[in-house]
Design a protein around this nucleic acid. Structure first.
Lengths: 248, 248
DNA sequence: AGAATAGTGTCTCTTAGACACTATCGC
DNA sequence: GCGATAGTGTCTAAGAGACACTATTCT
């Protein structure tokens, strides 16, 4: 099997981003409106070409910063604002009608951003509940068209990855601001899984898991009711035993 | 952000294969010896270029068949001989000294094959315990060189995927022949995890998980001792509750 | 006071893990 | 018989889930 790298079929390599956050008790994804054909005017995932001198995660972090201003997580960088990981790669020969494009999709988990539509482009970038992107309903703000290219499939894979990964890792904290309460963390789980959890058992579970939460000493009553302790994410990345998703 | 697919940097796209099996109570991977520079004479993972008209899984299945004769699993194809899934994509700019190559790695889980070195090329293809490939010891048959390119990293990622995935899925059966005993399945877990499991609790656990194992009615005493019931893999893919890996 | 959220205690039921014991083969 | 593997029963400790109860804030 001769291996001649100068005789290869021409490929373009892109990164696409599934950027998830929790807004108003719903799991939302970042979508951009396409300005040119194909799929002009349709919503799509943000993304772009990988440059000649950057690696895949670097390209994804650059696109994320261009689109949202967020800085993604270099491994071990605790000042980062968002979690970024590779999701999967999509390379069907006809996924882009123009030419052969292989897209390396990445998953980003971010806390709710103050600016609803980041960047200046309020008209062409938005957060949308993932259900409305996956099953377009044809209402005023949700066009009846599905996402461009195979982005619906990519988004579905990213959502499923996020749903399963918060079970056995501490990644749910990536949806929270640097300091958060147990109740806020519980509402993240409820939004991502679409379930209702018992607040008392949840509290006992997360505070009893070593390394998951570290109390900061402060309290807040921003949710109303009795003031709650503030926590930040602990060092643990794998939860053992895991959080259990109901109904499964 | 103009999106011009005709002005893209030149990429080559390959698939690399982490093919795992259990042989003589050890987790083994398929390695091929490189015939040309770079890394001439070193061991590497099997793989090759993605052709212009095939998708990524198709390219991986073709390479697998060329290398081992195995037919990989099309989704839902129960006559397939091996499980194939996408693992991750590796695209550091300097991972191949010749040019920019993005490799979409795939993970294959296969039962032990009758032919120790498949294909005619007994000298350039072999099964090797994953530890000897990941930490070359410099003995007679294990050269002290690590795998070519970033294949050591890819292999390590594949092994970790296999180890974690047999916890919560029925994938361990992919390492078994079509009919197998509970003891044989237990030895798969023991080899992949490198642990010793209690045969009695294991038996109770796997036979008590609905959809995991289906008795075929036959028995065998090929392991010695009291004849054991034969099973085949059931329809369940996700195990709930999962198998628990000790010491974690 | 009443409503809301935070946090603790207690009970039950399921399950993992340890291990005694029986069953059925080959030698 | 002896040693191997197969398979069942039993006990204990830990955790999930249900839910009563108390604590502290805001309106």
């Amino acid at each position: 099997m001769p291996y001649d790298p100068s005789a290869f079929p021409p490929f373009a390599v892109t990164v696409d981003l599934v950027v998830l956050t929790v807004r108003r008790h719903a799991l939302c994804a970042l979508a951009v409106r396409r300005g040119e054909p194909p799929f002009q005017g349709r919503w799509a995932l943000p993304g772009g070409f990988v440059r000649a001198d950057e690696d895949l995660a670097g390209a994804a972090a650059r696109e994320l910063n261009e689109e949202t201003g967020l800085r993604a997580q270099d491994p071990g960088d605790h000042t980062a604002e968002a979690h970024l990981e590779q999701l999967a790669t999509y390379g069907d020969p006809d996924r882009d009608p123009r030419m052969r494009v292989v897209s390396v999709a990445h998953l980003v988990l971010a806390p709710d951003l103050p600016s609803p539509t980041p960047g200046g482009d309020a008209d062409s970038v938005r957060w949308a509940p993932v259900e409305s992107l996956l099953q377009p309903s044809g209402t005023e703000e949700d066009p009846p068209e599905p996402l461009a290219f195979d982005h619906g499939r990519i988004l579905a894979d990213g959502v499923e990855r996020a749903r399963s990964k918060i079970e056995y890792s501490s990644l749910a904290t990536a949806f929270c601001p640097p300091e958060f309460t147990v109740g806020e963390l519980r509402r993240v789980y409820e939004a991502v899984w679409g379930v209702v959890l018992d607040p008392r058992n949840f509290h006992r579970k997360v505070t009893g898991t070593p390394g998951f939460l570290v109390p900061t000493g402060g309290t807040t009553s921003r949710q109303g009711g009795r003031p709650a302790q503030l926590f930040r994410a602990g060092g643990a990345t794998l939860l053992n035993p895991p959080m259990l998703r109901p109904d499964v």
